[in-house]
Design a protein around this nucleic acid. Structure first.
Length: 326
DNA sequence: AACGTTATCAACCGCACTTCG
DNA sequence: GCGAAGTGCGGTTGATAACGT
């Protein structure tokens, strides 16, 4: 019942022996380009061509990274998964030395449970109902890496507005430490922002149209946005987050209903998620960018979807819409 | 120590898409 | 244009290691 590529041969299945591995490695590293279907015969292996290919790609390839996933890799997987879903091969492109199979296994055996334990739906990355999360918490345990909680680590120099976090007014206009996004946008055409859900949907739509090319989206965003501002997409811990950067500031916010258990520290860590996300998707290191330029960080929180976040700069919003969604 | 349960992950399967003749 | 072969991908399985009783 082998695959058609090798149905005429007797095909061995199951785990590969060291001898088989040796044969395959020897063959692949010494022969020029040969189709996988002919590899078994030429290499003297009683395996299906597909099996050879899989063994090489997932295990024998010399550029593979071994060992457990790092916290940063885990974060990357979660962030990219939020945008792409179960596109393991696409996700693997963000993690050099890791295979789609490896990432898929890690997701299914570990990350999924962690997200659920944190009250997040692993499919949508949005909040689960408390009852579901609670019941799931009671029978899950996963400890593949040392720091098993998915919590972004703070890079200290970025946030010099910690005290300001205390006064997170529900009414952004009243927030004392920073002008509201609305007022920024209306007074300065160099700024604009998007509704968080709008960012989410446009990202998704655009990526589908562009064959999941996130870099293209960000290139597009930085071109169409004045001063190279970049819309910062949502993340696992900040499902409806949004943000923009300019020369000196990162303006951000999220509109997820605030869980009572989240304390001030949690809010700061959620804020960190913005830079992590942009680091991943913008392909630039936000840590160094922020540190070197002494960035200001402005983070706002609101409990509902305020009208004011819609198209705060109508011209930019329309431009964005027409270019992205056409 | 023996047995049952759970977690992990390598490998397989089937499908979709691409390439080739 | 068509069918076969080749390739790539995501879902699933099954062996076995690890853990619990």
């Amino acid at each position: 019942m082998g695959h058609h590529c090798c149905s005429k041969q007797k095909v061995k299945k199951g785990l590969w022996s060291p001898e088989e591995d040796e044969k395959l490695i020897k063959f692949i590293t010494t022969r020029a380009h040969v189709s996988w279907s002919s590899v078994p015969k030429l290499a003297g292996l009683q395996r299906c061509g597909k099996s050879c290919r899989l063994r090489w790609i997932n295990y024998l390839r010399p550029d593979l990274k071994r060992g457990s996933f790092t916290a940063q890799e885990e974060k990357t997987i979660i962030d990219v998964h939020r945008i792409l879903g179960n596109k393991w091969a696409q996700i693997a492109k963000h993690l050099p030395g890791r295979t789609d199979n490896e990432i898929k296994n890690f997701w299914n055996s570990c990350i999924k449970k962690k997200l659920i334990a944190q009250g997040l739906d692993p499919n949508t990355h949005k909040l689960l109902s408390p009852n579901y999360a609670q019941s799931y918490n009671n029978n899950t345990a996963c400890t593949p890496s040392a720091d098993s909680h998915y919590q972004p680590t703070s890079s200290s120099s970025v946030f010099h507005a910690t005290s300001q976090m205390k006064d997170l007014s529900m009414d952004v206009k009243e927030t004392p430490f920073t002008p509201s996004l609305t007022s920024i946008a209306s007074h300065d055409a160099n700024y604009f922002c998007l509704h968080p859900l709008h960012i989410s949907s446009t990202l998704t739509t655009f990526c589908e149209h562009q064959n999941s090319n996130i870099q293209a989206l960000l290139d597009h965003a930085s071109q169409s946005s004045p001063m190279g501002s970049v819309p910062i997409s949502c993340s696992a811990t900040n499902p409806s987050g949004f943000g923009i950067i300019d020369e000196k500031n990162l303006w951000g916010g999220y509109t997820e209903p605030i869980q009572p258990l989240r304390n001030e520290q949690m809010k700061v860590e959620q804020a960190v998620q913005f830079e992590r996300t942009s680091e991943v998707y913008a392909g630039q290191n936000m840590d160094s960018l922020f540190q070197s330029s002494n960035f200001n960080f402005h983070f706002m929180e609101c409990t509902q979807m305020p009208e004011m976040y819609y198209s705060v700069n109508p011209i930019d919003q329309l431009t964005w819409d027409s270019q992205i969604l056409q």
